[in-house]
Design a protein around this nucleic acid. Structure first.
Lengths: 133, 133
DNA sequence: TGTATCATTGTATCTTTGTATGATTGTACA
DNA sequence: TGTACAATCATACAAAGATACAATGATACA
């Protein structure tokens, strides 16, 4: 579980945590049944208050992604509702795109510069709508 | 932190604050990492409204001199020399792009889908995360 | 086994921090 | 005058932290 937060971001810490856990779930870094770090452990690692982690977990809990139980811990749900999984993909893409735009913008790059760079990185300087995995 | 304002000056209070903090930074009175007084503390000391202090801090924040974080406080930022900044910019863009490509790819989106999404996101100015509430 | 006790886990609530929005004030100028 | 604008203030809000608490688990011991 590697979660990193950016205190300078204009996205609240607890939402950064939410987004990263969602992404790790969709990207396979986290699997159903996995135990998440305890609120205190993650908070200590990130040097923030554990209530902030708790808040992030509560959001994920209410989204039906995890299950938190007082005195036991926090776990990825075994059977996340299918529509939740589906929505997760789009939500993750949203979060990724926002993050990318925010950061490149902060670095002083324009949208077009960023996109151009993306294409170069992808090794396909021009169009084509194929996957690039 | 000794800041003094002159109510009779024709310079706005918030700009007086901005100037004095800038000066204390160059004169070494303030160092990177230092915490500035809270908006309320400084406002109380100067007997002005805390929103005026907040406004000064916002100016400094947008200049990249300080970092204000809701619920945490306001801090002087580390400011690396310009040539380092320039190099870091490119490296950061590289890292950001690679990360974005890797993640969107994992989610099963094509490069063009991702870029299309980026443009859409750029259209709406950072709406924040509205997936739950 | 049962249970006392303590450690570990998440929760509730209040305080402290900065933010958003709109009203008020003062000043310049037509 | 009165209109326009910037600066400041008032109020309500949101994010993060501090503290005390409750639920669960682990361990020792009768």
């Amino acid at each position: 579980m590697k979660i990193s937060i950016d205190l300078r971001s204009d996205i609240p810490i607890y939402l950064q945590i939410v987004e990263q856990i969602r992404q790790q779930l969709t990207s396979g870094g986290l699997k159903p049944g996995d135990q998440l770090p305890t609120v205190r452990a993650l908070a200590s690692e990130l040097r923030i208050n554990f209530n902030t982690v708790s808040r992030a977990y509560r959001v994920l809990d209410q989204s039906g992604i995890i299950s938190t139980q007082q005195g036991r811990g926090t776990y990825i749900l075994e059977t996340p509702p299918p529509e939740v999984v589906e929505r997760l993909q789009l939500e993750s893409l949203d979060a990724l795109s926002r993050h990318y735009l925010r950061q490149t913008s902060r670095l002083g790059f324009s949208l077009e510069e960023a996109i151009k760079h993306l294409r170069q990185q992808a090794g396909k300087p021009d169009t084509g709508d194929q996957n690039f995995s």
